[in-house]
Design a protein around this nucleic acid. Structure first.
Lengths: 354, 354
DNA sequence: CTGAAAGCGCTAACAC
DNA sequence: GTGTTAGCGCTTTCAG
């Protein structure tokens, strides 16, 4: 066991008596050099003698000394931390539960770690998105990645206007000042619908809240496919299913209440699709024989569901990368374009006509 | 629109020409006072004149000025950031995917936000857990919450010995120097097994890797229940299913290969249970009629699965709270005890005898 | 009540 | 090669 220098000038005897942390001056004294030399050695400056450097490095390592990042950042005016913000609806206090968002977090963590950035995770009230800006104003982070555009287009525009470096996962909208990264929702909706049509379905329900930009785009794709295959769009088949709670169940119940014949449905998230399937089963519909179902997201459990879920894959790993790249580009004041990522149909059992 | 002071001393013309951020001196100048006064006003010191304070506050707000937390922390030697570390297996590069861990993140984010702490999310190589300590040594965070004990008991003990404030989600082990928060795995395993026994099952398989402390405890509960109900424990029914990948599928296949009769199984995670059920179905077993299944965790999708999954609930929200409380206590150098949280049987369709 | 000055832990000219 | 010195943006004695 190495011993720790007992003797260090300690002026601050705070009540929260934190056992004095090692700092550069301590290493310097122990190595018999000045702090500048330690600083240089630890940053591998070529100015410092090789022998001295190794000596200092080993001393530091053996004492578990690491440069204090806060002080370093202050001095260097740099910052290698990115805020990832997940807005929550204060009404529902929605518990950051959708597996898709959760996976996105994992993907972002990976992408940031790979590039040597830290990730500060925050939840903020969706109605108070400027508290997301605040975290930037305080200098804690070099920029913000926001997961969940919802209906906050205007608030987001305001942030961008304030020059907060911010990248949003969501749909690209007209008159948009902020940078988005998102998947191609129109194509996604189209692929899902076309797949159902090609499987011989004609009465395709749509489950999703069109108020949300991403869902609106999926709906657009849905409408486009119907039109292309000369199927009339029936508004009664469009149900505003919510992402939260048992969106799928409520939507199926509503649909049944309307007593419109339908033979398939396209749900705007896998979670909605899954609860919908369960509800259908309760009502003695067989999936896919009576009703074919296509979901959206391709969360990990989609494969494990029964029947395994046909769905539109959003490329989560690529999404994390793209979000991070866009943010870093923005932080370097480079002009940064929105990115649209490809979506892909994952054909599984829930839509297979027998 | 408020105008921003055009005139600020700017020595640093870094290449990364960051558009000068507002700082206290700017506010001071604009308000015609000294920085000390601004500092006091913004920290609501009673020393400063009410009128002056409101004036400064409004100025700051209108300019979106916020105190630079980095500098403040440095000066105050304080820190309100907690690291949440999710070790990953470098071999599998496991993608932080188990829904249970992901939900835990959400719960931690909530618990920390509620208490006014920031959450720094990090992934570290499971074999190099001292890089989790490093994040502490650099002064970035006041302590570490580690999700995933795995088999790293010794490494964790070393960290604790180094006085890194660390709390681990996992099982309480003998000779343990670090603080754990975990659920009562022995009782969990017992409840699951007892439930199957009471449902009339006699040949209960166990799916889980007993090398992992938490799983070992669940196994202990399993064994205890069997003993209590005078059922002989058959080692051939114990399969070391892995949490990652298709653990459940492989385990079922192995079990079938062994050609031992079984009428039920207890899986150590819901994910394992779900893939097991699907595999069983492929093999023409009916669940629950032929094989009753109980999972573990009670992830959100357990309810939505078909058949809905009987499982042992781990109290995720309470877990987040408890982890945070324990860490803060530790960070204040208070003696801190491990916490054992209650588990609960959630009885659903996958184990219902018909 | 307010300001001047010192310093949190580090880095980077500038000297030697 | 290495040390000295002056700050990064903030808080807080200590004077007035």
């Amino acid at each position: 066991m190495k011993k720790i220098p007992a003797q260090v000038s300690s002026k601050s005897s705070t009540s929260t008596a934190d056992q004095r942390r090692l700092q550069m001056a301590d290493i310097a004294r122990l190595a018999g050099v000045s702090t500048s030399t330690v600083s240089r050695a630890l940053s591998r400056s070529p100015l410092v003698n090789d022998e001295t450097r190794t000596r200092i490095e080993e001393l530091a390592r053996s004492l578990n000394y690491t440069i204090n990042v806060g002080a370093q950042n202050l001095r260097l005016k740099q910052n290698r931390t990115v805020a990832v913000v997940v807005p929550y609806d204060v009404a529902t206090r929605q518990h950051l539960s959708d597996p898709f968002f959760l996976s996105m977090l994992g993907s972002l963590a990976d992408a940031l770690t790979d590039r040597g950035f830290d990730m500060l995770l925050s939840r903020v009230d969706a109605e108070q998105l400027d508290s997301a800006a605040q975290i930037y104003d305080t200098g804690r982070v070099l920029g913000v990645i926001l997961i969940g555009q919802w209906r906050h287009h205007d608030q987001l525009n305001q942030l961008a206007a304030r020059h907060v470096p911010i990248v949003v996962w969501g749909a690209q909208l007209p008159q948009q000042l902020y940078v988005t990264v998102g998947s191609d929702n129109v194509t996604g909706g189209f692929l899902a619908t076309e797949h159902l049509i090609k499987s011989g379905r004609k009465h395709i329900a749509f489950f999703g809240d069109i108020q949300l930009p991403e869902v609106a785009h999926r709906y657009e794709g849905y409408a486009k496919a119907l039109k292309q295959y000369a199927i009339e769009l029936n508004d009664n088949l469009v149900i505003p299913a919510s992402f939260i709670e048992e969106g799928g169940r409520l939507a199926v119940e509503e649909l049944c209440r309307r007593a419109i014949p339908f033979d398939s449905l396209f749900a705007c998230s896998d979670l909605i699709a899954m609860t919908a399937i369960n509800t259908l089963r309760d009502k003695q519909y067989r999936v896919p024989d009576d009703i074919a179902v296509v979901g959206y997201d391709d969360i990990e459990l989609a494969r494990y569901f029964h029947p395994s879920l046909t769905t539109i894959r959003q490329p989560i790993a690529a999404a994390g990368q793209a979000l991070v790249e866009a943010l870093l580009s923005l932080a370097e004041q480079r002009p940064t374009q929105p990115r649209l990522l490809q979506t892909q149909l994952m054909c599984r059992a829930s839509s297979m006509s027998s």
